[in-house]
Design a protein around this nucleic acid. Structure first.
Length: 837
RNA sequence: GCCGAAGUGGCGGAAUGGCAGACGCGCUCGCCUCAAAAGCGAGUGAGGGUAGCCUCAUGUGGGUUCGAGUCCCACCUUCGGCACCA
């Protein structure tokens, strides 16, 4: 083999990709002699084209898998396809190409691109959510939910995207728009399937504490999304009607200040309690509120509007009759859709009271030093009413005007009031969530059919497990129409009732694709199982995922749904972990010209272009070097060229007779010359630094440390040539440290330099603290906080010796002369600090 | 409005409270070349000085400390999440 040829990645990369493919180098088997490591990158939607943003994602995952393998773990690193979804179906409506064909073709193309990047997976475990042997088990999951009472159907005002012609989950509505296409979402009353994720709300919040290795911001986002609050439900009896209005409040302590009530316009009691005199005004307000889209309702300035129903309810504590209003600032979807308004203690209620001249009572006195908000902002109330002389105060303090609670602090009053309400049967303490149940029906074709049959005699019937999968028919006409294209396929719709054998009809909605991705990490543990979704024993061996890598855009949706599924399956005994992902890493976007890479913006750097021109290793290394991996980074072609130059330098470090693979462990330190020691110190410092940095996901600094080692090797080589033991040792470590990052060039050089076996089967280089230690250190000398001198000390120098040496130096002596040394200290290996006056 | 993250050279960025700017990009000069590319070497925060060196400098203003990019307080800006959530 001619080692002197130039570094031409195109000549070596295909060879090694072939090697890993043929040898199934990264195919996982159970091996109890090693600790297991489950590495996983979020499986992608097969869109066909990969750009540098994807490359970052998969490079990090690949690096993790290769690194952990070298560290001695039994690694599983699988990949699959989140293959159902709207884009393929929308494309089919445009050009008639069947989603199945397009998707499977894209999968082939993407696997090709993975291979070209040198990304290795255990392809024996590949799954695609659009294939019957996968979605069969997604349907099985639905039936399990159904059996457990966690899947149910109800009529509700759902988020409807007029463009995609389907309903959306709350999580898929962003600022009132469809997260996919950006169309304004409207509300539509529809009967839909839901998963009862709210049953798990408490655990989904509490168990975030079991995840110390998740980014804090992701946990915070989930906490906020689930939105747990503690308060009370209180019944306000209606005056002149049967029944009561139940409100939810987080401040039961302020109930003495509740001077009116507000219902959401959609509240079911509105029609019943409205008086004839107010009927016209109320109906027109309700109609106007219903007409508004989410966007209008949100962009409408915070100016409060509302109408009195004409009705009264009785404050159960004060016994006073208070008016009942409706207003759209009260949301029917939160709490009970009704509030007790405490204008003295709530900004919204205060604004409303000012506008409609409703009484305001102060019930909380601020702590000393806390000023209440001055009343009477003229922009809120065009005409300042007498009542508005009461100031607004929303904080905590001591109760006033509150009967027996007077003088008590807020927290104590809250507890006391809940106790009183419960004793008198007027209410009870409760926990409330912002989280809503997960709406999973989609009126679209390209998804897993919901396995339910509607029988005119027996009603709703689950498809018997033995009849799964409910096959998605392929012969379908693609056009939009407000119901699933499946509804037009007679052979799909018309079935026999599994209960009575009479004619019945299938559910024609499909499941949200987030259902598919909520359990795929479990299927990877046992991907070919024909009897169950996965064998609990196999799942328990691999779970949980030790390193999960993906985009932060999944912080709420996918990551919350997958946690929900895992808990549900744990409850069912299918798996013994409460949390699916032990460690989560969310990588930042790669931008170009300041924007996320996208076809429509024309700023895409495709993986193919990168790999064909500079090579996969160059692309991988630059994407690791570009910046902290959890932050966004701007793509820069010049930077990639720099990485290519560096790999060229590495290549040249192996010119001549360089050998690798030996170990200097059995040599005594004294066997090395001073310059050898110097090089080996650098080698071992680099081993430590790179190891720590990879463990912390600081890949950019790991790469720069390796560059420094290469620079030191070059200098050594210029002086002493490459044929020394120390150089060979350095060359060995350099290749091993780079191996997870740039697998092709390191595998090639390892082979050319006569290394034993395959580089990626070698153990990670061992750090030798003795070799890393140095005998002499340079330390700075600070006088009164300013660095004035640098001195060389013995590494073992004591504080006394260090200070003496510092004071003895010419410069320091000159500065200190004639002054009193008030303080002196030595930070070993760093500096000497002297204070004089 | 609330919650979270971040502000450091021309650029990407580095720095367990201990010599700010590692590493790389770019740029300048030089070597090599008929020339270019590639490669190699030197330099590169700002200001001052012939020079040894000195002063200033990590969004702004305070503070703690022998010592602050790092810790504390207030503020400004940018990005992300939530948003009339009772």
């Amino acid at each position: 083999m001619d080692k002197d040829q130039r570094y031409v990645p195109q000549n070596i990369e295909p060879k090694w990709q072939q090697f890993w493919h043929e040898n199934k180098t990264y195919y996982a088997k159970r091996d109890d002699s090693k600790p297991k490591f489950y590495a996983l990158v979020m499986f992608p939607y097969p869109s066909g084209d990969l750009h540098m943003g994807h490359m970052r994602n998969y490079t990090i995952g690949d690096l993790t898998a290769r690194y952990k393998t070298m560290r001695g773990y039994n690694v599983m690193n699988p990949m699959g396809w989140d293959a159902f979804g709207l884009p393929a179906e929308n494309a089919a409506i445009k050009d008639g190409k069947h989603p199945a064909i397009r998707t499977l073709q894209n999968i082939v193309d993407m696997k090709d691109q993975f291979a070209k990047m040198g990304i290795v997976y255990d392809w024996d475990r590949e799954v695609a959510s659009c294939l019957p042997d996968y979605y069969r088990w997604t349907q099985w999951m639905f039936l399990l939910m159904y059996r457990k009472g966690l899947a149910y159907r109800k009529k509700a005002a759902a988020n409807w995207c007029p463009f995609d012609q389907t309903v959306l989950a709350n999580e898929q509505v962003v600022n009132g728009r469809c997260e996919r296409c950006g169309t304004e979402v409207i509300k539509k009353d529809l009967t839909q399937w839901f998963f009862r994720i709210t049953d798990y709300a408490d655990r989904l919040i509490d168990d975030l504490d079991l995840l110390p290795e998740w980014p804090e911001r992701v946990k915070t986002m989930q906490r906020n999304w689930i939105g747990r609050s503690y308060g009370a439900k209180v019944d306000f009896p209606l005056v002149g009607h049967e029944g009561e209005i139940t409100v939810y409040t987080t401040r039961p302590d302020t109930i003495y200040g509740a001077t009116f009530m507000v219902l959401a316009p959609e509240h079911p009691l509105v029609e019943q309690i409205t008086t004839d005199a107010q009927r016209e005004a109320v109906e027109s307000y309700v109609a106007q509120a219903r007409r508004q889209t989410e966007i209008e309702r949100m962009t409408a300035d915070k100016d409060k509007t509302g109408v009195w129903t004409g009705a009264y309810a009785r404050n159960p504590i004060t016994g006073e009759n208070i008016p009942v209003w409706i207003a759209d600032y009260v949301l029917v979807t939160y709490g009970t859709g009704a509030i007790m308004a405490v204008p003295g203690g709530d900004e919204r209620d205060y604004d409303f009271a000012l506008k409609y001249d409703l009484p305001i009572v102060a019930v909380v006195e601020p702590e000393k030093g806390v000023a209440p908000v001055e009343s009477g902002d003229p922009s809120v109330a065009p005409v300042l009413k007498a009542a508005a002389t009461v100031p607004l105060y929303t904080g905590v303090g001591h109760m006033i005007n509150s009967g027996p609670l007077n003088g008590k602090p807020t927290a104590e009053s809250k507890a006391a009031m809940i106790k009183m309400l419960e004793e008198q049967g007027k209410g009870k303490g409760t926990v409330n969530f912002r989280l809503r149940d997960w709406l999973i029906s989609r009126q679209r074709y390209w998804g897993a059919p919901i396995p339910i049959i509607y029988c005119p005699e027996c009603g709703e019937q689950p498809v018997p497990e033995g009849d799964l999968p409910v096959i998605l028919p392929l012969d379908v006409e693609f056009r939009l129409g407000g119901e699933s294209p499946l509804a037009r396929v007679a052979s799909f719709v018309n079935v026999i009732c599994p209960n009575c054998g009479g004619p019945a009809k299938r559910e024609t909605d499909t499941m949200d694709t987030f259902v598919d991705s909520s359990w795929y990490f479990l299927r990877f543990c046992d991907p070919h199982n024909n009897l169950t979704p996965f064998d609990p024993d196999r799942a328990n061996y691999w779970m949980g995922v030790d390193q999960y890598t993906g985009g932060v855009e999944h912080a709420i949706l996918h990551l919350m749904y997958a946690r929900f599924f895992t808990k549900m399956l744990a409850d069912d005994g299918m798996v013994n972990v409460q949390e699916p992902f032990n460690r989560l890493f969310t990588q930042g976007m790669i931008t170009k010209d300041g924007a996320k890479m996208s076809k429509s913006k024309g700023n895409v750097v495709p993986v193919d272009t990168m790999v064909d021109s500079q090579g996969a290793d160059t692309g991988r290394l630059f994407i690791l070097f570009i910046g902290p991996p959890d932050e966004d980074a701007e793509w820069n072609d010049r930077g990639a060229e720099g990485m290519h130059r560096f790999l060229n330098r590495v290549w040249r470090l192996f010119e001549g007779d360089v050998s690798v693979g030996g170990s200097g462990q059995d040599r005594a330190i004294n066997d090395y010359s001073t310059s050898d020691r110097e090089l080996l110190r650098r080698v071992h410092m680099t081993i430590k630094k790179v190891t720590d940095d990879i463990d912390r996901f600081h890949f950019n600094t790991a790469v720069s440390a390796i560059m420094e080692l290469a620079n030191a090797m070059q200098a050594y080589r210029d002086a002493h040539g490459p044929k020394t033991y120390a150089y060979s040792e350095a060359a060995t470590s350099l290749l091993l440290l780079l191996a997870p990052m740039t697998p092709h060039i390191t595998a090639e050089l390892w082979e050319q330099a006569g290394g034993e076996g395959h580089i990626h089967s070698q153990p990670w280089p061992a750090f030798n603290a003795e070799l890393a230690a140095s005998e002499r250190v340079e330390v700075a000398v600070q006088v009164n906080g300013k660095v004035r001198e640098r001195i060389i000390l013995d590494a073992e120098a004591t504080e006394e010796e260090a200070i003496a040496a510092a004071l003895a130096s010419e410069k320091v002596a000159a500065i200190v002369a004639g002054k009193e040394v008030r303080q002196a200290r030595y930070v070993p290996g760093r500096l000497v600090s002297v204070v004089v006056s």
